[in-house]
Each structure stands twice: as C-alpha cells, then as structure tokens.
Design a protein around this nucleic acid. Structure first.
Lengths: 157, 157
DNA sequence: GCGCACTTGACAACGATTTTCAATACCCCT
DNA sequence: AGGGGTATTGAAAATCGTTGTCAAGTGCGC
C-alpha cells in the first residue's frame, strides 16, 4: 500500500450523499444501490483477497444479480476511497480486500490466502530516509510479505 | 544519467553450454542466437524497467527482426535465471531490467523511471521476524519504493 | 554432411479489464 | 405525486498484454 492515508466511514459508497456538507465530490456518485451493497457485503464477509471475477462469481452463486462490469466499477471506486486494499498478484490479476483505515502492509499465506495486516514504523522510516538520501521526494512504497501460515505448513501441503 | 554500474557477464543465456559441467539444466536450451543477443543487448543498454512490448518495439525500430513471442520467451528465461529483475507494474504490465546478482529492492522514479537498487538488511530481518511471529514459514517479500527523483522534481513537471 | 533437438515467429487463443451505449433506477424539485 | 435529469447498470464488444500452437528454420554434435 501507499503511505497516503485515508480514514473515512467504511462505506461512503453506499451512504446517502445528502446529509453531509457537500465539500468534495466522491469518486462515484455514491448512490446506495442493491448492487453496491452486495459487493460491499461480499467484501465484508471475505477473509482473504479476492479478484473482481471471484466476487462476481460468488454473488452469482448467491443469486445476487450483479453485472461483472458493476463489480469492477464498485471495487475501483472503493479502492479510490481507500476502503479496500488493492494488490496486484504476480499473475497480474488485481485483488481486493476490506481493510482497516491506516497505512499498513500484509503478510499473506501463499497457500490459503489468509492475510494478516502488519505495521512497521521502522520500515516506514527507513524507506523515507533511503529515498531522501537519493534525492527522491513524494515517496510511497509497497511492501508485502508472503509465506506459508502455520496451519498450512502443518498439513504438509 | 548515472551509469558506471555493475557490469557482469550476465548473459548465461547466450553462452555456450558445452564447457560447463552439465550439472543443472538451464531454464532454456541456452543456444546463442541473434535474437537472444538482441534482447540481452537491449536490456544491457536500458537504464529503466521496460516491458516486453517496449523492448520489442525498440528492436523493431532498430531493425533487429525479433518476434514478439521470442522477446517474451527470452525475458522469461532471463528472469528465471535471475539475470533480470521483474516487476509487475500497477497496471499489471510486467517489466524487466538488468540487475545485480544479490537480493535487493528498488527505488523508482515515478516520472522518468530511473531506478536505484537498494538494500536494507534491517528490513530483511524485520520481515523475517514479523513473519515468524505470526507463524509463517518460507518467507518471501516484495518491497519497492516510488518517488520523484531530484532531476524530475526540479523540472517542475 | 546429417539429423535432430532447440528456436523462432506468425497467428490464434486467452483472460482480465475497460469501453460503449442504450435501458433503468433513483432523487430532487415543484 | 409526478416530471425530469442524472447517476447507474449491464450485455456485448473492444482492448491489451501475454501465452499457446505448430510448422518452418537453425545450429551443433557427430
């Protein structure tokens, strides 16, 4: 993830826009629709990162009637609002997961996908310092750790 | 441009296989062909990460007659041999760059693409320790820092 | 020289994502 | 409550990077 921070009510996208002091235009019209709620709910229930396609398939199984296009759009919007984490898998597929507000990284199980959010103030500082030393500004960074969790390792996969 | 970087024979892929004690099979037949040399040369000259398509386009401009498929295959082979770094850009495109041997990370300029290889023993240790704390084994990690280099920042892009 | 395995490359196939665009749903205003 | 305009949806087509196919080409050991 990037060091840019976001903290907002986790579901602006399905909130009524009316009541709030219309200061900034949301990334999307922000109208609470059945489809958006379905996507948000699916994410809320998910423990691991999922691709748009996976979420769409899951909704279909659940007879939720949401178009693939809409799933993509909703996920993009949520990502822009910083309400979900985005990860580009090695194979190029983009995956999403609900996340806590602040800046954090991930420890992901290669086998079952279980994900632990982690923080590393020391690493943040190191990254910033290193970039500065080389004259770089507007620094962001990505850091993900992959491994095999205890459960999966136990099952001698 | 800050040249004077590491120069290694980093071209196993075009070396004759004969002489070496045929212990392990290379990721590719390792026959030195005009096409492979062209790709390796293009990488040797490159200062920044490039996609297969970009390299192919460049070779074409240079009238080097190398098929796109071959560029892809050669880059994959080089990556498997660890002779180039692979990065999956945010948009999912895979990019390559020649690199020094050991484990390292990158500091990349968002504007011009200039890349600095960096090391962070402390970070390595931290990652390992953190993973262990959560019971994860077979740990790997990815870490890239993005920013705007001094030159680009100066030009008020 | 021969022959065969390694390579190549044009093209088709793929799969994820985006775009298009017409139909629909929703909300504000009167 | 109804109108109207805008946000939203979604099916299908278009993109686009990448991989698979397979016949033709090439290099190297023998």
């Amino acid at each position: 993830m990037t060091s840019t921070e976001h903290q907002q009510p986790a579901e602006r996208i399905v909130d009524r826009p009316g009541a709030k002091g219309a200061a900034s235009k949301p990334a999307i019209g922000a109208r609470p629709t059945r489809q958006r709620r379905a996507v948000v709910d699916a994410l809320a229930a998910a423990e691991v990162f999922h691709s748009a396609q996976e979420i769409h398939a899951q909704l279909e199984r659940r007879r939720a009637q949401v178009g693939l296009t809409t799933v993509y759009r909703t996920l993009q919007a949520l990502a822009e609002l910083g309400e979900v984490d985005v990860l580009v898998r090695g194979d190029g597929e983009t995956v999403y997961r609900r996340c806590s507000a602040g800046h954090h990284h991930h420890l992901v199980c290669r086998s079952c996908g279980r994900t632990v959010e982690i923080e590393g103030p020391a690493v943040e500082a190191w990254a910033r310092r290193t970039a500065q030393e080389h004259g770089f500004a507007q620094v962001e960074h990505t850091l993900e750790i992959f491994g095999v969790c205890a459960d999966c390792a136990g099952q001698a996969l």
